[in-house]
Design a protein around this nucleic acid. Structure first.
Length: 481
RNA sequence: UGGCCAGUAGCUCAGUGGUAGAGCAGUCGGCUGUUAACCGACUGGUCGUAGGUUCGACUCCUACCUGGCCAGCCA
């Protein structure tokens, strides 16, 4: 007989309570409140929903003295009982236990996350246990809903999901340092690097065909973006998107950066920057709406315990069109402002975080889409405007996070693209590794555009969580795994 | 990588150049239904590590380690 027989998930049970019927609940104890002369109240959570189920164990139950003392926070239990309207005020129904079985004990002296307050920092040392807390359970459910809605949004618009590779041989994709991937015996190389003739240690391997011995016969790395490969499929299938893990080997110690994160990258054929902006705005609005509609309990919790303004912020996103302005206009607004910035604003330099924050939080008080950036501060693949000094790039800035989306119309002219590669300092080797990318323009090239959205930043924005390490199950950051 | 802040009980924190405290957790007792339960008692710490100053350092200084914030890089 299966253990799950007659099991009712708490989410199902609370949504439609089967009153006065035999019910089985499986879950983990959150807290126990005991009244020795009377009854024990045990809050059980099974992860299916935010709320706990109050289990009431009468003193008259034969197993009381043996079982109830074991019901510490974290204990896995099976409860058989009858669902009844609750006499207490905080919950509509409660489970009158007929019997309670302990499936897995939890030693309160060893268990690190009891019901006492515990900081996010400490919880990061227990990434395997933190989903049992209110906050991380809520984040996990929100994250799931948002991920499903990423797919839902694009499928509804006829986009195909493309699985771009994690291991890539592309050089200089234009988005940060990559993690090298190798099967070479690094320990052996390090040891033999102690040159017996010169006595020098740690000699770097320098001959050109060094990586010829490696698994792929060349130097490869973990992808920093699926965009380039997505372009190949956009110029075949029309509208596509990628959604998967991405890796950056930057030594970033901030609340907005991870070494491993998930990225959503749509790519549309026969599209320009206007189409790209329309897509980005509709996409963000769709996800905010999904969170409000599908995670009301979680959102209420975030508002109460995490960030008081989250809900109104999401509603504000839905209420008005995003502000659109050119980089040049933004620079003018910033210069005209009376705000004193730590860094000066100058046309041709990238906007600082403080500038972006001022634009979205103070000047526009809404999401802002900035377009037409100076070409020198943007990637080689962005389409050069007719003015010759700006490119068809866009950044979507939102309050609280700053840049959440970066995108562009891609350069479809082979000669211009090649010139831009050289202009941006790609060496011959890098350009050679991207020859296939030029093929996309040589054969049936067409206007196309796309963007990238950091999924964790989205979850941060929607939940109000301050630190990106707390919106991904197992965060990877420099020096810590 | 740079600047700044922090590290005291299992957790959240207070503390003073004179030898360490509270709440929660845990144990025991009390309370006829609680819900951050409550009341009483008990248990629990070489004050991040290593040096230095001092009669004396948890407190002051230096270095290091760890964590965090901000900046840069970006998503």
């Amino acid at each position: 007989m299966t253990q799950r027989l007659n099991r009712l998930k708490i989410a199902t049970l609370l949504a439609n309570p089967p009153l006065h019927q035999p019910t089985v609940v499986l879950g983990w104890v959150r807290t126990r409140r005991e009244s020795k002369a009377g009854v024990a109240f045990v809050e059980v959570n099974d992860g299916s929903t935010f709320d706990n189920l109050q289990v009431v164990i009468p003193a008259s139950w034969s197993g009381y003295a043996e079982i109830v003392p074991l019901l510490h926070t974290g204990t896995a239990v099976r409860v058989e009982g009858v669902l009844v309207p609750s006499e207490g005020g905080r919950q509509a129904v409660e489970l009158q236990a007929g019997s309670v079985t302990v499936l897995g004990e939890s030693d309160p002296l060893q268990y690190p996350i009891g019901k006492q307050k515990i900081s996010y920092e400490t919880l990061r040392e227990y990434t395997h246990l933190r989903p049992r807390t209110n906050t991380f359970g809520a984040i996990a459910r929100l994250r799931d809903v948002l991920a499903a809605e990423v797919h839902g949004f694009f499928r509804a618009r006829g986009f195909r999901w493309v699985h771009t590779p994690v291991i890539t041989g592309n050089d200089a994709e234009g988005a940060g340092k990559a993690f090298q991937v190798t099967t070479l015996d690094l320990e052996g190389i390090a040891a033999s690097g102690r040159d017996s003739e010169t006595g020098r240690s740690g000699k770097a391997p320098d001959h050109k065909d060094f990586f010829a011995k490696d698994f792929f016969g060349k130097a490869v790395s973990l992808t920093v973006s699926g965009q380039l490969e997505a372009e190949a499929y956009a110029l075949s299938l029309g509208d596509v998107y990628t959604f998967g893990p991405t890796f950056r080997a930057e030594n970033s110690h901030t609340s907005r950066h991870l070494a491993e994160f998930w990225m959503v990258e749509p790519e549309m054929a026969f599209a320009d920057l206007e189409d790209d902006m329309e897509l980005a705005e509709a996409f963000l609005k769709h996800l905010c709406r999904a969170a409000l509609e599908q995670c009301p309990r979680e959102m209420a919790f975030f508002k109460e315990r995490v960030e008081p303004t989250v809900i109104e912020r999401l509603e504000a996103i839905l209420a008005a069109p995003f502000v659109r302005m050119t980089y040049t206009e933004a620079v003018e607004h910033l210069k005209a402002s009376k705000e004193t910035f730590e860094y000066p604003v100058e046309w041709g330099t990238d906007l600082q975080s403080e500038h972006e924050r001022w634009l979205t939080e103070k000047y526009c008080k809404a999401p802002v889409i900035l377009i037409d950036y100076p070409k020198d501060i943007k990637a080689f693949y962005m389409k050069v405007n007719d003015d010759g000094r700006t490119v068809r790039a866009m950044d979507v800035l939102v309050p609280h996070i700053g840049e959440i989306i970066g995108g562009s119309q891609r350069e479809e002219r082979v000669d211009v693209l090649q010139a831009r590669m050289k202009e941006m300092g790609l060496d011959d080797h890098a350009i050679a590794s991207l020859d296939w990318y030029l093929d996309l323009r040589r054969f049936g090239g067409a206007p196309h555009a796309g963007f990238g959205l950091g999924f964790e930043r989205l979850v941060q924005f929607v939940s109000g969580m301050a630190n990106i390490r707390d919106v991904i199950p197992f965060p990877r950051t420099p020096g810590r795994i």
